[in-house]
């Protein structure tokens, strides 16, 4: 199945030379036909040179804004809720300034700043440490900048979790399909269109690759009412680049050189 025309020509050529033409070529042809059937990208799919996010903190006004965004992701991706921090799996969540930007804390910051709910999820770094360390290429970087997980291949060594300087990765310490002591399933609403994970693999935000392929924006972006903006960082006319050009933005731990692709507009008062 997995031969392309070039390989087919090679097989056909070699088998003819060896004089065993006959059946080998016929088989090759049949398979070649199927390959002529080919695979192609979805024409509606969104494409970019390097996807990135801008998180505009001024749009996160209430707890409801945060919850809506988290639910929009966790519901469609069958992210389990184990109800304890030890086994916790999360793709997108919130934390406060001091913990999202350690090393940039400001002890005299306003109470308003200290209390802001910063949305955190995988940074889809340009030079991701997790991809560098993965021994099976189970986590890899796509051409469009999305740092992707191949759950079929992950052996659960958790090297990526040690390597990620952003704590973006979660491990399935137990079976996400299971139920708690009261018989309640860990995945409250099973979305039949998306898989779950199995115990023993690492997972994280995958940039809604399944939605991008269908021409849709990531779920959190759609649910955030402009709080999270998504676009091509390499395209100077993209909305993300315009926002980054107009506002003062910061990224998490840029000194580590991974080049995170999430930019935060801190806002604050008038000096945005």
């Amino acid at each position: 199945m997995s031969i392309n025309r070039r390989q087919f020509l090679k097989i056909a050529g070699i088998s003819t030379i060896l004089g065993i033409g006959g059946t080998a070529v016929v088989n090759g042809l049949r398979k070649g036909d199927l390959e002529a059937s080919q695979m192609e990208p979805n024409p509606e799919g969104l494409t970019a040179k390097r996807w990135g996010f801008v998180v505009d903190m001024s749009k996160f006004k209430s707890e409801a804004d945060v919850k809506r965004v988290i639910a929009s992701c966790h519901d469609i991706h069958n992210v389990p809720d184990f109800g304890n921090p030890k086994d916790e799996v999360k793709w997108i969540w919130k934390d406060d300034y001091e913990h999202v930007f350690p090393g940039q804390e400001n002890e005299y910051a306003t109470e308003e700043m200290k209390g802001k709910p910063f949305m955190v999820f995988c940074n889809h770094c340009a030079y991701p440490a997790c991809v560098r360390v993965c021994p099976t290429k189970a986590t890899f970087k796509r051409k469009d900048g999305i740092v992707m997980m191949d759950m079929h291949r992950c052996i659960g060594c958790r090297f990526c979790m040690a390597a990620c300087p952003f704590g973006a990765r979660s491990f399935n310490f137990r079976d996400p399909r299971g139920t708690d002591a009261n018989g309640q399933p860990f995945i409250k609403h099973l979305d039949p269109e998306f898989p779950t994970r199995t115990k023993g693999v690492v997972e994280k935000c995958t940039g809604c690759y399944e939605r991008l392929a269908k021409g849709k924006m990531p779920a959190c972006v759609e649910a955030s009412n402009g709080g999270i903006v998504f676009g091509d960082l390499e395209d100077p006319n993209s909305e993300v680049r315009k926002l980054i050009g107009k506002n003062y933005t910061i990224r998490r731990r840029p000194e580590l050189g991974t080049q995170p692709s999430i930019y935060y507009i801190i806002g604050g008062n008038e000096n945005a």
């Binding site: 560098r132 360390v133 993965c134 021994p135 099976t136 290429k137 189970a138 291949r153 992950c154 052996i155 659960g156 060594c157 958790r158 090297f159 491990f171 399935n172 199995t198 115990k199 023993g200 693999v201 690492v202």
Partner: peptide, 25 residues
């Protein structure tokens, strides 16, 4: 190492998909 793996049955993936940029490899 083996008992630490989440998916021990897939341990051969390390040889099936050799990855020289990984120190683990």
């Amino acid at each position: 190492i083996f008992v630490d793996l989440g998916q021990p049955t897939r341990v051969m993936n390390v040889m099936l998909h050799p990855t020289p940029n990984s120190v683990m490899f």
